[in-house]
């Protein structure tokens, strides 16, 4: 029962990443694409956590932590670059 619900949740998260990908492709400005990238990353963090539960391996959560850290740094650096204050 629990596994079924978690699989449905995983499918919904993948659907939301796919919808975000549409904005990533059609987005008119740079900032639109960065927002789409940010939301895809955050959705992937919960996706990785659910996959870690299904596989039963706590070590996968470290990947989620490092992934979140790197995406935060990337967004900050791209925004600084766009403001030309880097």
């Amino acid at each position: 029962m629990v596994n079924t619900i978690l699989t449905i949740a995983l499918a919904i998260i993948i659907l939301s990443i796919a919808i975000t990908m549409i904005r990533f492709v059609i987005g008119k400005t740079v900032i639109d694409r960065i927002i789409a990238f940010d939301i895809m990353t955050i959705a992937s963090i919960s996706m990785i956590a659910i996959i870690a539960q299904q596989a039963g391996r706590i070590i996968y959560l470290d990947i989620a932590i490092v992934y979140g850290l790197l995406s935060f740094l990337a967004v900050i650096i791209i925004a600084k670059y766009l403001e030309k204050s880097l």
Binding site: I12, I13, S16, S46, I50
Partner: peptide
């Protein structure tokens, strides 16, 4: 967890 997945879906719909 399922509720959280639905909220993420709302985020992507709002983005469109």
């Amino acid at each position: 967890t399922l509720l959280g997945a639905f909220v993420l879906l709302i985020a992507s719909i709002g983005l469109i």
